[in-house]
């Protein structure tokens, strides 16, 4: 069964066309991540799925039923917001239980589900507190708990980790992955952090300007991006794009090469000068200005003695090179 099916979904705010012909399927139990630059319509798409905005045209089906005219509370979804959005005047327990109470569930059922969720999220000691008395990480767990308690067909997360610090973000990311395994529920997760996207997703949906650019598993997108945008968006540091520094490129064609696929080679195709060095301990990132005045990033594993100002020659293997035409679409490599 499919958890979610979107067909030709469009959304306009007045004259602003935000979502353009979105078609998408989420299978049962799948973890789908929406990524894309700021303002590309990720949150809007999520809100259309949740029913907080009406689609201008197209159909939204959740669990096989078309829900275009169904209010959010009856769609069988639960949503976790970036700003937590906990009810400030209710205790943690009431925050988690409110949705069930509104559905008319008995107190016994509410209590049982809340205590199950709070045990899962380590919130047992905080049930009587108000949200303002919790740390950011705890608030986020309450928000997740509020979603779990409703036992939804589909979880929606809108950048749930972006207000947390790096360490906590990592922990919560692992927790969410574990949660997905335990509940085996379908989840849609919005982020613009590509590490979250790569680590959590079964399927990534890359959006740009309200259009789906590419859909696929993280490694599919990484190894086989459909266009220059997707290639540049996934991977950190991001892919280098060269149009002048290598010989033999057709006019207008761009060569893409990931930073980790470049290495020092006295007979390399590219020559240039190091302009900046970042030493991360495990990795070393070099910024190199090529003779044709293009800047590229080189990622070396381990520590490296190269200094700013050194002249270097770099090479790559043709198997690792991507080619893009004038419109940024993938082009076949020219037989060299």
């Amino acid at each position: 069964m499919t958890a979610l099916k979107l067909e030709n979904v469009n959304k306009s705010f007045g004259s602003v066309h935000v979502l353009k012909d979105i078609n998408l399927t989420v299978e049962d139990g799948e973890f789908v991540v929406f990524v894309g630059p700021s303002g590309c319509g990720k949150s809007t798409l999520l809100r259309v799925i949740a029913g907080l905005e009406d689609a201008t045209s197209g159909t939204v089906a959740i669990g096989g039923d078309v829900v275009n005219a169904v209010p959010p509370a009856k769609r069988g979804i639960a949503m976790v917001f970036q700003s937590y959005a906990l009810y400030p005047h209710l205790s943690v327990k009431d925050n988690m239980g409110l949705g069930l109470k509104q559905e008319g569930k008995s107190n016994a059922v509410v209590d049982e589900r809340v205590s199950k969720a709070s045990a899962m999220l380590d919130l047992d000691n905080y049930l009587t507190r108000r949200p303002a008395e919790l740390s950011g990480g705890q608030r986020q767990r309450v928000a997740i708990g509020r979603a779990i308690v409703r036992d939804p067909k589909l979880f929606l997360f809108d950048e749930p980790l972006s207000n947390l610090d790096a360490a906590l973000r990592m922990n919560t990311r692992v927790e969410i992955a574990a949660l997905h395994r335990t509940l085996s529920a379908s989840m849609i997760y919005v982020t613009h952090d590509q590490i979250e996207a790569m680590t959590l997703a079964d399927k990534i949906v890359v959006l740009r300007d309200g259009r789906v650019e590419q859909v696929g598993s993280p490694m599919e997108l990484y190894n086989n991006p459909a266009n220059q945008f997707v290639a540049g968006f996934l991977g950190s540091p991001s892919m280098n794009f060269l149009s002048q520094s290598v010989t033999g490129l057709e006019n207008g064609t761009t060569l893409g090469i990931r930073p980790e696929h470049l290495r020092f080679d006295a007979n390399g195709q590219i020559s240039g000068q190091v302009t900046h060095v970042e030493r991360l301990g495990g990795d070393t990132n070099l910024l190199v200005k090529t003779d044709a005045d293009e800047v590229l990033t080189v990622r070396l594993f381990g520590q490296d003695p190269t200094e700013v100002g050194d002249d270097v020659r770099l090479s790559y293997e043709n198997a690792n090179a991507f080619f893009f035409d004038q419109n940024g679409q993938r082009a076949l490599p020219r037989a060299a």
């Binding site: 509370a73 979804i77 959005a85 906990l86």
Partner: peptide, 14 residues
């Protein structure tokens, strides 16, 4: 007043 809060209420069926 945060939109998210009102939307959370809507999803909870208020």
């Amino acid at each position: 007043v945060s939109d998210d809060l009102k939307n959370a209420g809507r999803i909870d069926g208020l």
